[in-house]
Design a binder for these strands. Structure first.
Lengths: 343, 343
DNA sequence: CTGTTAGCGCTTTCAG
DNA sequence: CTGAAAGCGCTAACAG
């Protein structure tokens, strides 16, 4: 068995020509004679030549690899998003280097470091939920590694990102509930360092303003998105004097925990309290207590789009250092109303 | 801003010593004087030196990168498995290069190629459901890139793999249903090129044999695992003369489609026909029609274990080329019986 | 304890 | 149209 790895040099000596000629022939360089080009390509195939990418990466200072950092792969939103990223990357000859922060800022920092050392061409990140300092992302700019954020966007200036307009999604959700007759609507929100949490509040308040209603801040409670946190918050909401008859849950996972809390209180879903949530994950379709509606956030598309932006950034990174314009792609979410049949 | 990237050579000239000394000092080589070591490390930190991994990868013929090829990231089983892989890899200073085959053999082949060119140190793969030729995996062995398969194992000799003992899982499922009084038990199986499908049949037959029952082959039907295929197969099973009162579904996703088919036939779940399935995915916990029980396959653990085997293989790949012993790790699955409360 | 040297495999000027 | 040579950044004999 020809276990040995074939190099350009070998092809060269076997053909009595120089390595540079071989390299050029392999790349279909115009200045190479058809005759030699053919001979080289033939022998290359015969010997089963494979270019050593690590050598090329090193030499070209480009790895055709994109680093992706996200909180948790087992959350459907993220696995779907990275699926989109990978599809787009693959289509464009890029590969994906993946790491999960597990919502731990320290690990996130370390991953940025690893990715940098691996010389990824770019970084796609969805930040850990309690990341509040951003030096690690600032730092990487100096290395000409573009960063595009998706979904979980940090509160930083001058960044590229793609996200869903959660304000508008929340307004949609709110109005939907209003139309069903709900007067008092609560919200289980996420940590306030997330843009998405701020936007939810914004959308909620916009809806109130438009409807000329008064804002009761106690109806919106932030939590850390842990099961315990969600249970507590749900109980709190449902024990208010101004008790909500409907609740907007941060996402479909949060909803699952909120539903449990409601059951513990011996209240009836869709009777004592109704829910609307975000993400529109497949679990909702099969759930025993699906939300009345869920704000679709197009996770796959977000990932795909983020990668497209990255490709664009990479294509012109050398010519113009456009440190002035930033992509801020905001997808319009869509409230998916679940049919009565499934309720 | 010091945008320039610092190299060992620079540190060397600034300190009037040789690059090799710097390299050694940075690696805490014992033969370097404490004095110089300190000076080097200090300056390195000051200049913010970062080793160029691509150079190291190239030079060392090792990338500390593991390629992972799996069918579909948005399937919970796989995202959970890769989560385990990544955790184990990360803990051991390895990174994960990821690609989805989307159950397409062509793309799988191409991914193997890409991974090979990227010079991954090893490959972890769960094959596409209709992959039946394995040259691409045979080929990669010549490059000293170990391959460990997980969950979806090809019918090849001499491979490393970790999987769940689906035979035993199926026997457990079968016996569970028998105890509930079911006499005629059907099975929606996957494509027969998958080891897991063969094992299901084996487990089914073992259970029959032990119970001294006769085997009716029409009660086991293979399908392509598409929604349409599942619908057809379900209808077929339920229109047999020897009609099953319980069905073992290939996994929790298949179950969802099978349930739909049952509804279309106006039959009642858990009355006309009961289900048991595999995977025990979270969806089951929230599903409107969860299976009576589900065979837990420990996806995260499978991924983690596969990566551990890989690490072991990598640690001794140079010393002994142990082409004779192969890891065949078979995890014992566990039938998780869903509490009546959720039914 | 430290320096010299060579080389990993490839691309790419610069000369013919 | 082709060759010679340099060099990407780092490590590792080998030689002091």
């Amino acid at each position: 068995m020809d276990n040995k790895i074939v190099t350009i040099k070998e092809i060269a000596t076997k053909l009595n020509i120089s390595p540079s000629t071989v390299s050029r022939a392999l790349h279909d360089h115009k200045s190479i004679g058809l005759r030699t080009k053919a001979r080289v390509q033939e022998l290359a195939k015969e010997l089963n030549y494979e270019p050593n990418q690590t050598a090329i990466f090193f030499q070209q200072r480009k790895t055709f690899t994109i680093g992706v950092i996200l909180p948790e792969l087992s959350e459907a939103f993220f696995s779907s998003a990275i699926s989109g990223i990978e599809d787009c990357a693959n289509k464009n000859k890029y590969t994906v280097l993946m790491g999960q922060s597990h919502d731990d800022t320290e690990r996130e920092k370390q991953l940025v470091e690893t990715m940098k050392n691996h010389r990824v061409d770019g970084l796609l990140v969805s930040i850990a939920k309690n990341t509040t300092t951003y030096e690690h992302f600032e730092a990487i700019k100096k290395y000409d590694i573009p960063v595009v954020f998706f979904d979980r966007i940090p509160s930083m200036e001058n960044i590229h990102y793609v996200a869903c307009n959660m304000a508008s999604g929340t307004t949609q959700a709110f109005n939907f509930l209003r139309k069903l007759g709900h007067k008092t609507i609560g919200m289980i929100n996420g940590p306030m360092n997330l843009l998405a949490s701020k936007e939810r509040v914004e959308g909620y308040r916009n809806a109130l303003t438009k409807a000329r209603l008064k804002y009761d801040p106690s109806l919106i409670i932030s939590c850390d998105l842990t099961t315990d946190g969600i249970h507590k918050v749900t109980e709190k909401l449902l024990s208010l004097k101004n008790k909500p008859t409907a609740i907007i849950a941060f996402n479909d996972y949060v909803l699952l925990d909120a539903v449990e809390a409601v059951k513990k209180l011996k209240l009836k879903i869709n009777k004592d309290v109704s829910f609307v949530s975000y993400a529109n994950l497949p679990i909702s379709n099969y759930s025993a207590h699906p939300p009345l509606a869920s704000v679709e956030q197009f996770s796959y598309q977000q990932g795909y789009k983020a990668m497209e932006i990255m490709l664009d950034l990479l294509s012109k990174t050398n010519s113009e250092n456009d440190n002035t314009t930033f992509y801020k792609i905001i997808l319009e979410p869509q409230l998916i109303i679940h049919t009565p049949a499934t309720l």
